[in-house]
Write a protein that binds this DNA or RNA. Sequence first.
DNA 1: CGTACTTTTGATCGAAGTCAACTACGGTGG
DNA 2: CCACCGTAGTTGACTTCGATCAAAAGTACG
Lengths: 250, 250
Amino acid sequence: MKEMRSGPNAVAMSTTFPELFDRFSAALLPAETPDATILRFRSIARAIRLDSHGHAEFDPKAEQLAFVCVGSAKLVARASGGREQVVSFHFAGELACVPGGALHAYSIEALTPCELLAFPVGEFLDLARSEPAILSEVCDRVMVALHRASEKSVALGRKTAQERVCSFLVGMTERIGVRQGNGFAMRLPMSRRDIADALGLTNETISRQFAELRMSGIIETSGRSLVTVPDIGSLRDLGGYMQLPERNAA
Amino acid sequence: MKEMRSGPNAVAMSTTFPELFDRFSAALLPAETPDATILRFRSIARAIRLDSHGHAEFDPKAEQLAFVCVGSAKLVARASGGREQVVSFHFAGELACVPGGALHAYSIEALTPCELLAFPVGEFLDLARSEPAILSEVCDRVMVALHRASEKSVALGRKTAQERVCSFLVGMTERIGVRQGNGFAMRLPMSRRDIADALGLTNETISRQFAELRMSGIIETSGRSLVTVPDIGSLRDLGGYMQLPERNAA
DNA sequence: CGTACTTTTGATCGAAGTCAACTACGGTGG
DNA sequence: CCACCGTAGTTGACTTCGATCAAAAGTACG
């Protein structure tokens, strides 16, 4: 029971536990799941409510699955010397895997007010085993996370600052962008610093890259968080991606 | 059937398909799996035999699961300008996830002569759904891969060259090292260049870091591939890891 | 035993980091 | 509603770590 500790900004909020759990079960538990199983998932779920910038630390030995019910969050790893790496960003409806027994310290931090359900992986998978459809859904989601991590390692390992920023923006338009003519508009919930920590850069470098992209008309910004991309193609061209030979009709 | 294309070094080798498949099924299919299911796995498995440095390209649209039956391999992503990132190394008995529909081009390349079984993910998971134990095992392995990727992104995003090399060596001792007194010895199947491509550095930098570690007595080397680590603790201290507060007895 | 490739070592360069100062956004209270 | 203030973001000057370019030395292969 002591395995989760919430940070200073952890705060009571509106949504009730049943409401949170409903969002989880709507997303991950198939309709035909027996009530008994649902109840057992309920009994291992732990609600975490975070104010903006609030953070949740977990027992470093116990791996967790965290379902984001509302809001958005980042999964952060800490290395020596206070260095932070944002491993992934997560939006409502997504599942985050918080490693246990790792050599870095992981935590989940809220980008916006945020409500999560955390499950110890072991017990979660034990239950899921009784319902292949759940296991299959979890497996799919973990694979998506792995693919994102693979793509990201290319950026972190081999790309320039500009390419990293462009790939980041391409990825974000796909996840939270709303179509706008030829391009996209989006409200980024994370700070320049968060972006820097995700891309292995500094906030100054992010700022400079945003400035350049603004100059060349690739993006427009308004306020701290609103970004519009008039033409997603030119942004993608700057992402350092492999030019795929496939060019046939969909 | 045209989804897999083997490179110039793909070559015929000793192990027969039934032998390869047995290794796969011993690792991933539980004893109680019905013969019909085993047969269906067999029918979607595709054997890939690679000479040292041979490579296998896959249909970029179709995600694959590749089980390494014998030998060792690297999962490589290619970005524009011929840049390569080694996403992960894999040894016999491990499962590699080759992303499909990605913005980079992925391939598997042999470090040593190597034999794989490749499965299209969709069909694989369809079959696995009938046997929760298989799904559960795959899920576990994919999570391990995700954790490694998370830890690696800390290295790529926030660590110095020396810290990256030390974390790499720490990870390798855990995977292929053989205990030797206080430390470990191992034969690294990958070249300096492979290590560089995995750590987001150059082969020159790897060479220089190895030289420094040799100087300070942290490692000893013999020939190109033999590395011994007299004291794993001092190597770990240089890895830039979080100094975990946990210091209690096991 | 020779030869081709990998590794090592050295010298120089450049992209991003660091340090510092200034600006502007957006939330709070008057 | 507007003025104020703290934080986040921007911009500039300089530094640094690892990349790049080049050449020598070492391995392991035929």
